[in-house]
Amino acid sequence: MCTVCGCDGKGQTIDGHSHHHDHGDDGALNYGAGEAGVHVPGQSQTRLIEIEHDILSKNDALAAENRSRFLQQGIIAINMMSSPGSGKTTLLVETLKSLKDRPVGVIEGDQQTSNDADRIRETGAPAIQVNTGKGCHLDAEMVGHAMDHLAPEQGTLLFIENVGNLVCPAAFDLGETRRVVLASVTEGEDKPLKYPEMFAAADAMVVTKADLLPHIHFDVELLIENARKVQPRLDVLTTSATGAPGITPWLSWLNGLTLQFQEAAE
C-alpha cells in the first residue's frame, strides 16, 4: 500500500480522490516521473487548487458594466424573453407606436436575419440587430457592443428582444433593469412548469394574443397559477397587440416602472 495516500498503487481512488503521484513497477514513488518531469520539494507533481470560480463570472462582470451604464444614463432596459412566435416583436411594434413622446431604443436578438429590426425601424424607433449565429441567447458582451452602436440618448426606454428560446437566455444577465417573459395563449398553460428557470428569473409575465381566448381552450388563471408556483412575486399583464384587451396593462406597467426610477433618481 502506498504510504503517501493509502491507495494500493494500482489507480484505485480513496474517498473520491484520484491518485496524486506515480508508482513505479517496483513500488517506488516516482515524483520525478510525472508530467512535469521535475520534483519541487513540498509540492507533488499533481496538485489540487481550489478556485471557486463562478462559471458565469465573465458575463456577470460585463452585465454589471452594462447595469452601471444604464443607471448613469437613466436608461431603463427591459430584457424580453419567450419562445419563438409568442409575439415579442408584434408587442414591441405596438408598444413603440404608443410611446412616441419618449426616447426609445431596441436591441433585437435573433440567430439570423435583420427582419425584426426592420419591423421595429418602420415605427421610427432606433433599432440594432444582433445576430447570434449559432448562439441561442444574447449575452452581456453582445448587449454592451449593441449599446456602443445604438448610442441611446439619456432616459431611453430600451427594449432588448432576446433570442426566441425559453431555456438559455434565462442564465445570462444582460444588466437589464427588468426581465419580462412572454407567454401566448396558443402555448400550453404548463409552460412555466416545463421551463421553470425562465419564469423563475422573470419580474413580469406578459400574456399575449389574449384576443384569441374566446376561440380556444386556454385557462389563463391556470397559466398564472403555474407561473406563480415558480415565481410567487411575478407581475402578470394580459394583453393583445391586435385586438381586445389591447396592451394598456403592459404600457401601465412600463409607466409605473419609469415613475419608480424617476423618483429614485430624484
Binding site: 487548487i49 470560480h53 410567487p232
Partner: peptide, 20 residues
C-alpha cells in the same frame, strides 16, 4: 405551499482543479 424563495442550489462554479 408555493410561497418559496430559493436560497441555495443555484450556483454554477468551478470548485477545484487538479493540475500538473
Amino acid at each position: 405551499s408555493h410561497q418559496l424563495i430559493v436560497t441555495g442550489g443555484e450556483d454554477m462554479k468551478i470548485k477545484a482543479l487538479e493540475v500538473v
